[in-house]
Amino acid sequence: MAQHAAKGARFQAVTANRLSDGEVVYFSADNCWVESFTDADIADGAEAADALLARAMPDDFEAHVLEPYLFEVLEADNFYKPASVRETIRAAGPTVRLDLGKQAEVKAE
């Protein structure tokens, strides 16, 4: 798990795995867990990131998800993407099975 939030990262988002099926989820601006990275709330700066993680972890968070954590996000032209290979793969699915994971659902839509 070497690729969690980097120190000094400006933009960060919160991710976890859903309890019932392990699906990768992100914490949204609407205070709920969503399946797509594009719907994730993005925090700008360390304080906002801490606040985002706190919002994602109310007392009963364990009833819905496992192990929420912050990870670094990069911004270019108002478009965000995960900074690390690890989070890029979590957001899409296995790079060796493009027919599986979130990438497959996007294609099928």
Partner: peptide, 17 residues
């Protein structure tokens, strides 16, 4: 490797391929 494993640092399978 990193295509599936939570502990991975890097992908193994694409390299093997």
């Amino acid at each position: 490797g990193l295509d599936y494993c939570n502990l991975a640092n890097a992908r193994s399978i694409p390299l093997a391929q």
